[in-house]
Write a protein that binds this DNA or RNA. Structure first.
Lengths: 357, 357
DNA sequence: GCGGCGTACTGTATCGATTTAGAGGGATCT
DNA sequence: AGATCCCTCTAAATCGATACAGTACGCCGC
């Protein structure tokens, strides 16, 4: 049988409490006794208080849960997500806390909810989940601190928020496009529709989009385009089945190969925008010349590809998320952090071509 | 006070056990009663059995711990690590298990050991830790299943292993280099010396290297070079302070800027090799022409950079690791998995230049 | 009418620690 | 000498659940 506190206590001839104190509160006993206890522990092969028992008793898990869309494995293929996690990990490490990646799936919602309910964590970080996903409700019920980068109408007012002004950012990006003279534009985004296939969709108004981030980003573009007198009905919208380069390219095909080709394509993420660039390259079209392209995030690859994009502080966002989660401030003002963004203009955007085709 | 099993049991008028069964063993009670219990739970805001209490009682945590060198955040900057994690995550998800990233640090070993001791997990995956790190011993003491990609003399024979034939792989890469006629070669690797700065080091024999993977990779090159009649004392070795592109470039500077410039540089990872390519570019030297470069891993960026490298199955390695961890086979033969590697020859290697400088 | 059996549920011990109040005893102060 | 205090250490309650043995009860067959 594996040794427990009791085993060690008996061996040394002290009480269980004293052994516990030896590990957790060195000031509660004499250094000699403490050393004697450690000695016995070593001899018996006792590796310190059992983490689960300790968690139960102290009512804290020493980990924060991170939710991700789609398969857990997907999280690692998005450079933006990776950066975000980096920041989060930094904060966590400072507090001797681990990161528990909670497997989430879009297909098997039951399993996803189960994972949330069973996660031994002190708080959750919601990274990117569509509004309708039941895991979000399951999290609420757990009653733990939650930091989210998105908002839903049904969210508890306790939910902490760390994000950016999504709509404001894309509004500025949209104005950049319209000032360059573009009037035939297309939008490519994930979660534009509830059904996740790559195909053109009709989005009567941004309010219809079922995922916060996409909704807000669309709203910004919608507003900017309207300001410039563009009829929303003329703006092509294509849903991408995933936030990946390949899906971006596939979505781009739907707008690039059709009669009046748009002169500008705005994408909701850099990964999608890079896919659009791939699609342009495949057709011999010059980015920023024949077709302007805008992304979002400013991942490292964006600079290399000369992609105009909205920069948001990925690592910082993760870091702040971690801080809020591990030590939630009481002051309501501090519970809602909006980080700055910046439009980074590169070569992928340029004046609208004067004559088409 | 938050509701517990007891609260719900009292509300419905049944025993605690029955409520527990309602969640964990639906076959133990009538569907009607089960529904009644869930109804009450919902009404009371009970979100299901407490994960920590459940973990304690069932003696299983529902998570596996992943250790990484250096700061936890570093894990995400290495594409190879990301791929590995992807595979691991896939296996874990299949068993409804989460991944707990256990913060490890090289500076604060105390904290690192503490993190290992406190991790509520069912097993550990050792990804890349220098042999001397005390966390490795701490893991042994925990007595949980461990899958490692490395071997130490002091490792318990129970340790599961998933890896590749490191020395065999670099031996083949080394022969590739010597067959191309290279005789002045340099080696760049991390953990070549115990002290982690970027600088030339003297490594009398591969056995002196304090980290399994580096030791084995060095051994392969050592053997290949000796086969070709190269004097080991003439092989320049440079330690890289980290497994990063920047460190690779910095290390390369030490060999490229010195009198008889090597005609080939072999690096222990693709990340380091990409750094070497950067260093070549900065000096106007042509890879595969003036200087040949070899990496290891075959990360996605390697193909884009035309880097000759050893391909090892990253995702697969993660996947197998997960399987072994969650369901350790009894058969000793299956507890030791060696995955295949392959030398991928690209443009970064070519015949040794006929005359120097 | 009684043994045998299956279903549906209960009671109790247990998982391994932490915490709080407090006991015992020597040193210090008055 | 007596009161006070501090320093160590102990005892008992508690954290929230699960496993297992056991009970109650209805039903079947002979």
């Amino acid at each position: 049988m594996r040794p427990t506190l009791q085993t060690v206590a008996d061996a040394v001839g002290v009480s269980r409490s004293t052994v516990s104190n030896a590990y957790g509160r060195p000031d509660q006993l004499s250094p000699e006794l403490r050393e004697k206890i450690f000695e016995a522990a070593r001899r018996l092969g006792y590796s310190g208080p059992d983490p689960m028992a300790r968690s139960l008793r102290r009512r804290q898990a020493g980990a924060i849960g991170v939710l991700f869309t789609a398969t857990l494995s997907y999280a690692f293929t998005d450079p933006y997500a990776v950066q975000f996690l980096r920041g989060l990990a930094e904060s966590a490490q400072r507090q001797e806390t681990g990161l528990l990646l909670v497997p989430q799936s879009l297909e098997d919602e039951e399993a996803a909810v189960g994972a949330v309910r069973n996660a031994a964590v002190d708080g959750f970080c919601v990274y990117c989940m569509p509004d309708w996903h039941p895991s979000l409700d399951a999290i609420q019920v757990r009653g733990l601190p939650v930091v989210s980068g998105q908002r839903r109408a049904t969210d508890s007012p306790d939910t902490l928020y760390v994000g950016v002004d999504e709509a404001g950012s894309t509004r500025i990006a949209g104005r950049h496009i319209t000032r360059l003279g573009h009037r035939r534009v297309a939008v490519i985004g994930d979660y534009l529709s509830h059904d996740g296939s790559t195909r053109p969709v009709t989005v009567p108004t941004p309010d219809d989009v079922p995922y916060f981030v996409s909704r807000e980003r669309l709203r910004g573009y919608h507003d900017a385009f309207r300001e410039a007198g563009i009829d929303w009905a003329d703006v092509a919208a294509v849903n991408a089945e995933a936030n990946s380069r390949a899906a971006g390219a596939a979505a781009a095909a739907h707008v690039l190969d059709r009669a009046p080709r748009p002169t500008a394509v705005v994408a909701f993420t850099d990964l999608l925008a890079l896919g659009v660039l791939d699609a342009l390259a495949a057709r011999g079209l010059r980015p920023g010349h024949d077709v302007s392209v805008v992304g979002f995030d400013d991942i490292p690859e964006a600079a290399a590809a000369s992609l105009t994009t909205v920069r948001q502080p990925a690592v910082e966002r993760g870091r702040v998320t971690g801080q809020l989660l591990l030590d939630p401030p009481d002051n309501p003002a501090e519970r809602h952090v909006v980080l700055p963004t910046e439009l980074v203009v590169r070569a992928s955007t340029g004046p609208a071509p004067t004559r088409s085709e």
